[in-house]
C-alpha cells in the first residue's frame, strides 16, 4: 500500500521497517487510520502483526520510517494509547479489580469514582462477580476480558488490540465483539485490531488489511451498515466480503 496518508489521519505509519538482525519482520509498511475509525489487521501466524502493533504503540522503534499519532512523531509509549497484549499479562498478586485499576493507580491516587468506573467496565465484560478474585482463579478467556477492561479504563484515544478474543469460545467472542463495537461507537476511540479470524475482522472493521511476510498486501473497505447485528453474519454481503478476504490471503505469498 503506498497510499499517501490523508491529512486527517489520526495514526499514520509511514514507510516503516523493522527487523531483528538482518531479517525484515515489518517491511516498508504504509498505513493510515482516520480519526475514530476501526481498522483490522489479519494475517497468518508469524506474519509480523504483533510487531507492527508494537511499532504503532511506540514499544518498538522503527529502523526506518515514522509513526505519527495525531500528526506528532511517536517516540515512545504514551498515556493516550491503550494496548491489549496477546497474552493477558495480569498481575497475579492483585485482585481483578486492582488489575483493571492499575493504569490509573500508576498515575495518581485512586478515588471512589475510579472504582465505580472499573466495576462498570467489569460489568460490561461480564465479570462483575469476579472483581475480588485473583487472576489465577479465572479461566483464560476471563483473563483476556480483564485485560480488555484494563485497557479501556484510561479511555485512550487510540486502542491497539492484539488478538484479544483468541482464547474465547465463539459465543462469548460474538458478545464481546458487540460490546467492543458499542464501546467504540460511544467513545470515539480510534482502533487497530489484530486478529486471525476473518469473520471477526469483517464484523468489526471499517477497513481490513492483510499482512503477509511483513508487508501489507491488500486492503478492503467494509461498507456494511452500522450498528452491525448478529443476523448480518449470515447475510450474502458479509459472506462475499469474507470470501474476498480469504482469497486475498491465499493469494498473498
Amino acid at each position: 500500500m503506498s497510499t499517501e496518508a490523508p491529512p486527517d489521519a489520526f495514526v499514520a505509519i509511514e514507510a516503516v521497517d523493522f527487523g531483528y538482525g538482518a531479517e525484515a519482520i515489518v517491511d516498508a509498511v504504509d498505513w493510515a487510520i482516520p480519526r475514530g475509525a476501526f481498522h483490522c489487521l489479519v494475517g497468518r501466524s508469524g506474519s509480523g502483526k504483533t510487531t507492527l502493533l508494537k511499532l504503532a504503540a511506540g514499544l518498538l522503534a522503527p529502523q526506518r520510517g515514522l509513526v505519527r499519532i495525531d500528526g506528532v512523531p511517536l517516540d515512545g509509549p504514551g498515556p493516550r494509547i491503550g494496548f491489549v497484549f496477546q497474552q493477558p499479562t495480569l498481575l497475579d498478586w492483585l485482585s481483578v479489580l486492582d488489575n483493571v485499576l492499575l493504569p490509573l493507580s500508576l498515575k495518581r491516587s485512586l478515588q471512589e469514582a475510579d472504582r465505580e468506573t472499573a466495576r462498570a467496565l467489569l460489568e460490561r465484560v461480564g465479570l462483575s462477580a469476579f472483581a475480588a478474585r485473583h487472576p489465577a482463579q479465572l479461566s483464560g478467556g476471563q483473563q483476556s476480558r480483564v485485560a480488555v477492561a484494563r485497557a479501556l479504563i484510561t479511555q485512550p484515544a487510540l486502542l491497539l488490540l492484539d488478538e484479544p478474543f483468541a482464547a474465547l469460545d465463539a459465543l462469548t467472542r460474538e458478545e464481546l465483539q458487540d460490546d467492543l463495537a458499542a464501546l467504540w461507537a460511544l467513545q470515539a476511540t480510534t482502533v487497530l485490531f489484530v486478529t486471525h479470524d476473518i469473520g471477526e475482522a469483517v464484523y468489526l472493521a471499517d477497513r481490513v488489511a492483510i499482512m503477509a511476510g511483513g508487508k501489507l498486501h491488500h486492503d478492503l473497505a467494509i461498507d456494511l451498515p452500522r450498528p452491525r447485528s448478529r443476523a448480518m453474519r449470515y447475510g450474502p454481503a458479509f459472506n462475499a466480503l469474507c470470501r474476498e478476504l480469504r482469497q486475498a490471503m491465499d493469494a498473498a505469498p
Binding site: P77, P79, I81, T89, L102, L106
Partner: peptide
C-alpha cells in the same frame, strides 16, 4: 510481557 505492560502504562 509484564515489563512491556508497565512501559506501555508509562510507569
Amino acid at each position: 510481557g509484564r515489563r512491556e505492560l508497565f512501559r506501555m502504562l508509562g510507569a
